[in-house]
């Protein structure tokens, strides 16, 4: 089938080497700097707060939001993290997940709102989301390293890229699912578009949006191991070390730590979305 040769590989390299890095390099340096500050605030806070206090607080939160069962699991799960000596790694992973999720929500929800309000925006955004979700993450890890170096910042950005689509999609869906008549009612009583969004559409879409946030967190956690390949610390790095040393136990314990965090975050955010 090679009737002609498409030098896409060379083009891409030329684009990255001659344009992306020289032109956007300084921009990414700034991004890197600020991102690093935000991440270290999260990370140092989570590492500063005593494990016991954190465990009690999260258990109470789980109990209030999601009930006894989840609270018990939270308690046992966090004890497990401490007992296998992975507390620090667990908090590092949590910091990466929280920062990436935060950015996913900050970017994803407004984009979701825009695509719900305009079919044109939706048509434009959809293929980008497909791209973000299906492109193997290693592919954008390479330019991320070139632009941002090795470490926690490219890890957060790759996680952000991978985890944002559900926030956009489910915000879009949630707003579009608000019944036409209810939107008509809000308009008929003289709402401005902004009032309509704040007072009617977002509150009614909230459970769906929260389902999106929940998915975002899950995807962010599932990136933990891959992100550690470009130098992110945490439970993922533990798993990676287990793999490289062919230490099954080490990999298993690290992996189980990720699962524990995932279940706790999933149950709590899920309950938040269904609450009311």
């Amino acid at each position: 089938m090679n009737y002609f040769y498409l030098p896409l590989e060379d083009w891409t390299n030329t684009f990255v080497d001659d344009w992306l890095i020289p032109v956007l390099g300084p921009v990414f340096d700034v991004i890197r700097e600020y991102l690093l500050i935000i991440i270290s605030v999260f990370e140092s806070f989570l590492l500063w707060i005593p494990a016991e206090v954190f465990t009690i607080l999260l258990t109470i939160l789980a109990w209030r939001v999601a009930g006894k069962g989840v609270a018990l699991f939270t308690l046992i799960g966090l004890f497990f993290l401490g007992s296998v000596d992975l507390w620090e790694q667990g908090m590092q992973t949590l910091a990466i997940v929280l920062v990436a999720t935060l950015f996913s929500i900050i970017v994803g929800v407004p984009v979701g709102i825009l695509s719900a309000k305009s079919d044109k925006v939706e048509r434009f955004v959809r293929p980008i989301l497909d791209f973000m979700q299906t492109l193997p993450s290693f592919v954008y890890l390479i330019p991320a390293i070139l632009l941002l170096g090795i470490g926690i910042v490219p890890a957060v950005i790759s996680t952000f890229v991978f985890a944002t689509p559900p926030a956009v999609r489910l915000t879009n869906l949630g707003i579009r699912q608000v019944p036409t008549e209810v939107v008509e009612a809000a308009r008929a009583f003289g709402s401005t578009p902004w009032q309509m969004l704040i007072k009617v559409q977002l509150p009614m879409a909230l459970p769906t949006i929260m389902a999106g946030v929940n998915q975002t967190i899950m995807l962010a956690l599932s990136m933990a191991v891959i992100a550690s390949m470009i130098g992110a610390p945490g439970l993922g790095a533990e798993v990676l070390r287990g793999i490289s040393q062919i230490n099954v136990g080490m990999g298993f314990v690290g992996g189980l730590g990720i699962v524990v965090l995932a279940i706790i975050l999933d149950r709590i955010t899920e309950a938040l979305g269904n609450k009311r």
Partner: peptide
């Protein structure tokens, strides 16, 4: 000037 009542009530459930 204009109030409206809808077939399926169109109340705000939240």
């Amino acid at each position: 000037k204009l109030g409206m009542v809808f077939q399926r009530f169109a109340l705000f459930p939240h």
